[in-house]
Design a protein around this nucleic acid. Structure first.
Length: 895
RNA sequence: AGGCGCGUAGCUCAGGGGUAGAGCACUACCUUGACACGGUAGGGGUCUGGGGUUCAAAUCCCCACGCGCCUACCA
């Protein structure tokens, strides 16, 4: 007898097991000794160096770990590659904030010192998430850990940059961009968020130069009028048709500007005439290009007015300038009116500062060729396969279709400095290194471009840069393309699509076969968890309270849909973990003799029903689990495992085995029963392991079984651990329909008797007598199980025959299929109560029969529904009829 | 403004043309030799509303309402 505590304490094993797994190299693909093993690989979406573990991480890490462990146990050469992202802007902001506390700016330090400081910060605080990840139990290969700023990854970045530049896909240009006046850098469209905003719509009058009157334009940003170089109207707008080509005098600045015609203008909006500020609005910029308009920059990089805005304005903040413009226009009687107006405004995703569109020289990446590669892959091969396919495949494709050039330079110091150098004459040399640049330029007198690359540029190369590209490494040959990417929907554009494009371009193959897009964990009100709202739940707290395994089950069961977080969920899975613990506890308490014999389920035909049944259920479960894992049905697979373990194994199999297992005297039968119990438990633990790594390892190690025997052949010789044991596969030969049907009859019978006990208020300690009447086919089934039936219904006597004459004073029930059971209750039965119970029973049946008969009475149904459907209904009606008749007889007997 | 998703038991969610499901919560009984983080038996839903297709709709289609997300060049 092996004694373990009554309650599972998750903390005990968590650290210890993880350290052992890691130390022994179980996470590395090299543990697999089968040269022909199939491959499975995942690269982790690298968390930001500034980050700490949140629910989103815990969710996706759980899912990745489930898959990695499942595949590893199934004999796949499995690589889950971990890493971290340098997170350009976020990290630079973090360190800048630190400096501010010391009263310093980054400029006080200078670039080199600042970057040095960021590295130091990274060593000290960065990557705390990595230790938190260890707690989650993630089976990542830490020996392959990568950081996006590692030298090898930086080399890949430069290589890609040079190749794209040489092909003309990367270029430097002067264009309107999103500028963050706070972070002092350009941002890509994807790093800008649109927020609804309550503001005003100002109607400004611009007088004609050569005639009386004025044209009124509407704007939300009157301060930009100082930079206007035209007014545009729709060419089909009759109101303005005759005015096209006329000249207006821009108030305050007194610049002469033309009225131009452009399709872009919506006649219905405002006055149908639009002021055009090419230097400060993306649309106006495009219009300016179309009409050859001057670009007058009136706002600078600090969102202050420039000299160009005029002496009264120069140096003013953009919002102060707005007030002054309005003031001046009012004085000139050129402000027609002001309306309240709600619109959306672009903000910096990081610091929430309002973006200022500016014309600036930046590096851009042309996306057309890359986009076409990705679209062709999707169209021709259906790759990547999105799960769920709807809506993500369409979202992905639509975005690609409308892709515009990507602004890849950033005015930051933390990141990959752009591998471009300038000669004194201003020639641009793009090269892999300064040496190469010097060689190309023929001079040493070069200055490197100050800017760094968008963080997502290096992320885009992640699946192959981490595996050694541009070298042709063994890892690339083995693990690329990766098997699946697990990610949230917020980075499909920022990251997923870009990895796909660069993978196709530089590896000639998709970055991953499948993309699984998981749901979002929200707070109980359905709100996104966020730091600013302070509504987040810290996964580490949850681990502490309920254990890692329970948390993992909760997260896995969320699947692809959003889930409102509630500790109750984790609590129920904590209870499940405890249930598993105690089922094992029962087995271990009855361990003696259970380790005898390696094939406890031999001679299958002679096995007791419950043994054949549990084998069938186990194999069915294994089949379902495989099918569900292979289709990323995380929610489904958790349900499957939960119900198999709790309902089938605990509620029925253990209970049905108890008589044999707990027999007082040792016997071959007892040993065999114990061995069978261990066998099922052992396999169940293996099925559960990908989800509950700690608990299953803890228990598996305690089982009195020959552990090495269960290792997957690919790991033969390894120190036994459940994480390298073979994942149970369905053996179709062990699926036993007959056993399941017969077992169902017994379960029904027991449930009905228990129902009688409960409804008739029979005291738990009272032993009852059971009389079962069954047809010839079921008689032997019940007869063979009378001991177990007696045990589970607390009966002292069970008889089975064809048609017993039931005593009048008995509570009775009729089972599906026609078997009847009676519980004689001489002196105990309350006839009125029993009648009421039977009437309720009958009413239920009649309600169902009513529906069925109505359907069968419908000629159309009988004529058009599939014949087997009609047959099925008829059979059900017949069955209900028989049971009703039986109930009537019972009622009659009671009257 | 468009696109998409969702609306199922008090709560959180599965399911998805043919007998409405789970967990939690609730009721009653039970400390039965694994587990009260447990056992047994129950109660509870006209599957948001309205139309349509069909022999049959919670499920498919249309409309409405409510909620959420994404995309966007209406100043």
């Amino acid at each position: 007898m092996i004694e373990i505590p009554k309650t599972y304490d998750p903390k005990e094993g968590e650290r210890q097991h993880y350290e052992r797994w890691e130390a022994r190299g179980y996470f590395a693909p090299e543990i697999n000794q089968d040269p022909n093993a199939p491959m499975f690989s995942i690269v982790i979406p690298p968390p930001n160096v500034t980050g700490s573990l949140h629910m989103g991480h815990a969710l996706q890490h759980t899912m990745m770990d489930v898959l990695a462990r499942y595949k590893r146990m199934s004999g796949y050469r499995t690589l889950w590659l971990p890493g971290m992202d340098h997170a350009g802007i976020s990290t630079q902001l973090m360190v800048t904030r630190d400096l501010k506390k010391e009263g310093l700016t980054r400029h006080d330090l200078g670039r080199d010192k600042f970057v040095e400081r960021v590295w130091k910060w990274k060593e000290q605080y960065g990557g705390q998430i990595l230790n938190q990840m260890r707690q989650e139990g993630v089976s990542v290969d830490w020996s392959r850990f990568k950081f996006t700023m590692d030298e090898d990854l930086s080399r890949a970045v430069r290589e890609v940059f040079v190749r794209l530049y040489d092909e003309g896909l990367i270029y430097r240009g002067n264009r309107i961009v999103n500028w963050c006046p706070n972070d002092q850098t350009v941002l890509s469209d994807l790093e800008v968020q649109r927020d609804p905003q309550k503001g005003k719509l100002y109607y400004l009058r611009y007088p004609f130069k050569n005639r009386d009157g004025a044209v009124t334009v509407a704007t939300t940003r009157p301060e930009t009028m100082l930079g206007d170089t035209a007014v545009a109207v729709n060419p089909n707008d009759e109101r303005y048709a005759s005015l096209i080509g006329e000249v207006l005098v821009l108030p305050i600045v007194n610049r002469e500007i033309p009225i131009v015609a452009d399709e872009f203008v919506e006649s219905e909006f405002g006055t149908g005439a639009v002021k055009v500020t090419p230097a400060h609005d993306p649309n106006d910029y495009e219009m300016g290009k179309r009409h050859n308009l001057a670009e007058v920059a009136v706002i600078d990089r600090f969102a202050r007015m420039t000299e160009e805005a005029g002496a009264d304005f120069a140096g003013l903040d953009r919002y102060k300038a707005r007030e002054l413009v309005i003031e001046k226009l009012e004085a000139l009687n050129l402000l027609e009116k002001t309306d309240d107006y709600e619109f959306s405004i672009s903000k910096c995703e990081r610091c929430k500062t309002v973006i200022e569109p500016l014309i600036s020289t930046q590096w851009f990446c042309r996306m057309d060729q890359l986009r076409d590669l990705a679209l062709a892959k999707l169209r021709d091969e259906g790759k990547p396969r999105f799960v769920p396919r709807v809506p993500y495949e369409k979202v992905y494709a639509d975005w690609l279709e409308n892709l515009r050039d990507w602004t890849i330079s950033r005015q930051l110091w933390w990141g990959h400095q752009i591998p471009a150098w300038y000669t004194k004459d201003g020639d641009v040399i793009v090269a892999r290194s300064v040496e190469e640049a010097r060689q190309k330029a023929g001079t040493d007198d070069l200055t490197q471009d100050e800017d760094v690359l968008d963080t997502w540029f290096s992320s885009a190369l992640w699946p192959f840069s981490t595996m050694g590209w541009p070298d042709e490494t063994e890892d690339l040959r083995t693990f690329y393309p990766t098997s699946v990417l697990i990610t949230g929907r917020d980075i499909i554009f920022l990251w997923v699509s870009r990895m796909m494009m660069t993978g196709l371009k530089f590896m000639g193959a998709e970055a991953f076969d499948d993309v699984y897009v998981h749901g979002t964990i929200t707070d109980k009100h359905g709100q996104r968890m966020s730091k600013t709202k302070a509504n987040g739940v810290d996964p580490l707290d949850v681990f502490e309270k309920y254990g890692v395994d329970a948390t993992r089950l909760t997260l896995a069961s969320a699947g692809a849909t959003d889930m409102r977080w509630n500790d109750k969920h984790v609590e129920s899975y904590r209870n499940f973990a405890n249930k598993i613990w105690n089922a094992a506890r029962f087995c271990l308490m009855n361990a003696e003799g259970g380790d005898s014999g390696d094939a406890p389920f031999a001679n299958r035909e002679q096995l007791p029903l419950h043994d054949r049944w549990i084998l069938s259920r186990l194999n069915r479960t294994a089949g379902a689990v495989k099918q569900q894992l292979d289709t990323y049905d995380f929610h489904g697979v958790v349900q499957t495992l939960y119900h198999f373990f709790w309902d089938d194994f605990c509620d029925w199999y253990i209970e049905l085995s108890k008589a044999s297992v707990t027999a007082d005297t040792p016997s071959p039968d007892r040993s065999l029963a114990r061995a069978r119990l261990f066998s099922i438990l052992e396999q169940a633990l293996r099925l559960l392991h990908p989800f509950m790594p700690y608990l299953t390892e803890e228990l598996w190690q305690k089982l009195p079984v020959k552990h090495a025997m269960f290792l997957h052949p690919a790991y033969r010789g390894a120190e036994p651990t459940i994480m390298l044991a073979a994942f149970p596969e369905e053996d179709a030969a062990l699926i036993d329909e007959r056993a399941e049907t017969e077992m169902q009859a017994i379960i029904d019978l027991i449930s009905r008797v228990r129902n009688i006990r409960s409804e008739m208020n029979i005291k738990p300690g009272d032993r009852i007598q059971l009389m079962i009447a069954a047809k010839a086919d079921l008689q032997p089934v019940f007869a063979a199980s009378t001991d177990q039936i007696a045990r589970l219904t607390r009966a002292k006597e069970v008889s089975v025959d064809g048609h017993t004459d039931m005593p009048k004073a008995s509570a009775r029930a009729v089972l599906a299929g026609g078997a009847e059971v009676a519980v004689p209750l001489e002196g105990l039965i309350d006839f009125a109560q029993e009648r009421a119970r039977l009437v309720r029973e009958k009413e239920k049946l009649q309600k169902e029969a009513g529906k069925l008969e109505a359907q069968l009475g419908n000629a159309d149904f009988v004529a058009r529904a599939p014949a087997e459907k009609v047959e099925e209904l008829r059979a059900r009606v017949t069955d209900i009829g028989q049971r009703t008749t039986a109930l009537d007889q019972m009622l009659e007997a009671l009257s």
